[in-house]
C-alpha cells in the first residue's frame, strides 16, 4: 500500500478534504442521534455533550489540518520558484514543478478546509442542538 502522505502520491492532495468529510459526517451524525435518542441533555466538562464534543472534534480536525498544511508548506517552500519548469523538457526540472504543484495543491486544500471546519464548528457555540 503506497504511503498516502508521500510527496508524489496524488492522495496527498485530497487528505484535507477527506479529513473534513469524516469530521462533517461525525458532527452531523452525533447531533442527529443525540436529538433523536434523547441524550442531548448529558454534559461533558459542564457543557452540553453535543457542543462540547463538536468543539473537541473541531479542534482535533483543525490540528490535523494545520499539520497537513505544515507538511505541505515544508515541501512547497524549497520549490516555490519552480513554476515555470512546468514547460521544461528536462525531466529533472519538470519533476521540481510537479513537486511544487502537488505541495501547493495540498497546502491550498488544507487552508480552505481549515476555513470550512471553522464554518461548520462555530455554530455549535451559538445554535441550540435540537
Amino acid at each position: 500500500m503506497a504511503n498516502p502522505l508521500a510527496a508524489d502520491n496524488p492522495i496527498s492532495i485530497v487528505l484535507a478534504p477527506i479529513v473534513w468529510s469524516v469530521y462533517f459526517l461525525f458532527v452531523y451524525v452525533l447531533n442527529s442521534v443525540a436529538c433523536t435518542k434523547g441524550f442531548v441533555g448529558l454534559t461533558l466538562f459542564g457543557f452540553g455533550i453535543v457542543p462540547a464534543t463538536v468543539v473537541i472534534a473541531t479542534l482535533v480536525t483543525l490540528a490535523i489540518m494545520v499539520w497537513l498544511a505544515g507538511l505541505a508548506w515544508s515541501r512547497f517552500a524549497p520549490v516555490r520558484d519552480t513554476d515555470d519548469h512546468v514547460h521544461s523538457a528536462d525531466p529533472e526540472l519538470a519533476r521540481l514543478a510537479r513537486r511544487r504543484f502537488m505541495a501547493l495543491a495540498g497546502l491550498l486544500q488544507a487552508g480552505l478546509h481549515i476555513l470550512a471546519t471553522l464554518y461548520v464548528g462555530l455554530p455549535a457555540l451559538l445554535v441550540p442542538e435540537c
Binding site: 452531523y28 476555513l115 455549535a124 435540537c130
Partner: peptide, 19 residues
C-alpha cells in the same frame, strides 16, 4: 431536522462558495 444539524449544512453551503 435538528437546528444545529441545519447549521452544519448551512455552513457547508456557504463554504462551497469559496472555491
Amino acid at each position: 431536522l435538528p437546528h444545529l444539524s441545519l447549521s452544519f449544512f448551512s455552513a457547508a453551503s456557504m463554504a462551497v462558495a469559496i472555491p
